[in-house]
Design a protein around this nucleic acid. Structure first.
Lengths: 146, 146
DNA sequence: TTTAAAAAAGATACAGATGTCCTTAATGGG
DNA sequence: CCCATTAAGGACATCTGTATCTTTTTTAAA
């Protein structure tokens, strides 16, 4: 019922780059980590994966950093979740029964599956861009972590 | 979107004791662990907590073991989840924003909260007894773990 | 070409969930 | 009371997610 901390780091990292994109084309991990109150080096590792997945771009060297690309805004949250949490969580029986599946369900299977589908929907239907177009933009004032 | 392994151990442990209750009033952790293919000593620790919570009873010594009590069958799954996973998971912002709440929501807050409520419902409305009265009793044949 | 800046990559550390083992306490039967 | 049996409790090991630090690679500017 919860995502990893890494997911939060990744998503907020991408959002921060997107928010800054009209002010600066590239943002360094140093700045992101500071603004989000997040461990710098760890964030770096996660951003690297986000880049590998194609959700962001990056360049090394002076004036380098992380930047938006054609895919960024249209990327579903699911593509970040895939990196940080994987999808195993959507298929694991809560009773941890080996052979629980739709044709041979545990007593909770159907309810749980319906619920997970709804979760999956949220993450697949919502894109990075969607989050930026929401009314609740005030949330952006403080991207700082827990 | 997933419960801990400990939750699965605990719930199946309780279910096994309930299933055996007409054959034997008490079941030893040794037997439970074997039948569920679960680590014996670790299961012991979890069962202890389940007893402490009042969901099961136990007695030491010869012919001892774990047994049902008045509360067992009516206990909601939530009472087990509380022991093994806690409820923090229902309140943690997926973006890990410090001050995300219903009056100042992140763009995902409302959707996520609705979904978590549904999860919470499953675990609070479903009791141990309910699981035993389900049609899908065939699942009981193999309580063995993943 | 040299230099400095920044991401990428590698090594190590830490914490919590999980798992194992050994000791202690309780209990029923002799 | 004594003994065997079983849960409870404590100490330690392992594994995975999280975090830190150092080194390497790439790049832009001079």
């Amino acid at each position: 019922m919860v995502c990893s901390k890494s997911f939060g780091y990744a998503l907020r990292g991408v959002l921060y780059v997107a928010l800054m994109s009209d002010q600066k084309p590239r943002v360094q991990v140093e700045e992101i980590a500071e603004k989000l109150s997040v461990p710098k080096h760890y964030l770096g590792k996660i951003m690297k994966q986000v880049v590998k997945e194609g959700i962001l771009s990056s360049t090394k060297g002076p004036y380098g950093g992380f930047s938006l690309n054609e895919k960024t805004l249209s990327s579903p949250l699911l593509s970040i979740l895939r990196i940080t949490d994987g999808f195993e969580q959507f298929n694991t029986c809560v009773l941890r029964l080996r052979k629980c599946n739709s044709s041979r369900p545990c007593p909770l299977h159907d309810q749980i599956e319906a619920n997970r589908k709804a979760w999956m929907q949220i993450f697949s239907k919502t894109s990075i861009g969607d989050l930026l177009n929401k009314d609740e933009v005030s949330f952006l004032e403080g991207l700082a972590t827990i």
